[in-house]
Amino acid sequence: MINNDKIKIENVNLYYGEFHALKNINMNVKEKEITAFIGPSGCGKSTLLKSLNRMNDLIEGVKINGKMLLDGIDIYKDMDPTMLRKRVGMVFQKPNPFPMSIYENVAYGPKTHGVKSKSKLDEIVEQSLRSAAMWDEVKDRLKKSALGLSGGQQQRLCIARAFSVNPEVILLDEPTSALDPISTMKIEDLLVDIKKNYTIIIVTHNMQQATRISDKTGFFLHGEVVEFDETEKLFSMPKNKKTEDYITGRFG
């Protein structure tokens, strides 16, 4: 089966003030696949990820040029950022549940987008928590503060929260870097499980993680995409010497 291109990145350059953080990026992300970004610290993975739902807009002095298309539509020219972010959800490196109840955390997104009916909200909350594989864990304490959950549970709650607005793409920035192996495994299983419905892009420092779950992998270095290929190919026979050095651990 050949999937369509969900996201097209064409000649994107990004500057933080004078600093050239992304250099001429070209990349196509296919629908219903998991794409992983790997590369050493500071190479621009998070920057590219954040520019896909325009979270970089919040930072002063960011300049971006080139094109980013979601289903063929230019997200910087022809799309309202709030609509974009509803369609392209994000899970951050550090779990960041709101200081509210578990229920309110998940209901926040739909409420923001105008869902008012209690029964509809209940349904969305249950659905989202089920999709994040944590309904059974929390169904008896929906009214309790989300801050009382463990780190792994908080992160899955954030994933549930991202589901709640029914996005098409989910961006995850090192979602498991603060978690223990079991929580990590749960989230990996979850991602593989949900990719039939979502397009997923994940930044990770963990190369095993990339090989375990991703279909495509992009290797970043100094703001450039050095190599972007099917995960299997990239890890078994990298075309570029730098990629090879990095994945074999001979780098930096």
């Binding site: 974009l84 972010r85 200081p99």
Partner: peptide
């Protein structure tokens, strides 16, 4: 108020104003 709350809210498609008053 930690920025990560603001990011979480904006990341769900909330507006700036909505984020200020609800989070």
């Amino acid at each position: 108020v930690p920025d990560m709350y603001r990011e979480g809210s904006l990341g769900l498609g909330a507006t700036r104003l909505g984020t200020v008053f609800r989070i």
